[in-house]
Design a protein around this nucleic acid. Structure first.
Lengths: 146, 146
DNA sequence: GTTCCTGCAAAGCCTTTGCAAGCGG
DNA sequence: CCGCTTGCAAAGGCTTTGCAGGAAC
């Protein structure tokens, strides 16, 4: 059993537990999302889902994505001038760097930054519900400082 | 001459210098944006502009906003599940906290965070072109740690 | 006078929704 | 079986665009 199978299983259980029906369409989408290592949009997910469930409609994809988001299975991403993209909600929070030349999306995390964000919000009388941080970047000419 | 007049003047000059025509519509929008302390969307700007230029069309507002953005006069903001909002591009960069209860938008800046972002990008072989950071927050129950 | 800009209306794009038939538990 | 889901088609909301008349320089 692969990691993504385990993940799909976990997601499915979470959905079942919250009382929503596991239809072929939803099962297929959960599988696809559990396997995805990229950040597909609704149309792309529809394309991928059509292999498992021929005839699946784009509306169903959208509706399922909303449901999955609501149940914490996926995260909706909204990069500049782009359609909504999705990624599964894995254990650890991360943010994104988008290569403005290639469109490539790289994930990163920084506990230091998160800590500063929390401190900053707290100093202004707020607590953070969630946040969004996107770095639009370009490859450096020279070699990366490794 | 108020600050916003000076700002409007500066913006207008920048536009003139880049060869675009200063029509009544554009002048009105530049003024309005220079005066704005909030983060209006296109419809709101249209509403405000209609006082100075009755009959101004929403298309013109959109077209002007695109032009202003292109010429660095304004910044386009895209908060979660909201239409595009705009603010004038003032001297210092800042980011936004959005109160999820009231919708209120608070600006903030943190050179510490920016420095960490730069360092992080650099360590991965990138340089930051621009970034976006939004903190979705809620007022703390107790008193803010001042 | 040119050329760019505007208003109008229509279209575009992504996403949501009403409805009747269909499937899941 | 009952009721949630689906597919289809249509609508929705925001934004962009084609076009012909009008304004800026």
């Amino acid at each position: 059993m692969s990691d993504s199978d385990a993940l799909a299983e976990k997601f499915t259980q979470a959905l079942r537990d919250s009382g929503i029906r596991i239809t072929r369409q939803r099962a297929a989408l959960v599988d696809i999302i559990a396997q995805s290592e990229d950040h597909p949009d609704a149309v792309e997910l529809h394309r991928r889902a059509a292999d498992a469930v021929p005839g699946i409609s784009l509306s169903t994809v959208y509706r399922t994505l909303s449901a999955l988001e609501e149940h914490g299975v996926i995260q909706r991403l909204q990069f500049e001038g782009d359609t909504a993209r999705f990624e599964h909600a894995d254990l650890d929070h991360h943010d994104h760097m988008i290569d403005v030349d290639s469109g490539e999306v790289v994930e990163f995390q920084s506990e230091e930054i998160e800590a500063l964000q929390d401190a900053l919000a707290a100093s202004m009388g707020y607590e953070i519900v969630h946040h969004r941080m996107e770095l639009y970047v370009r490859k450096t000419r020279g070699k990366p400082k490794s």
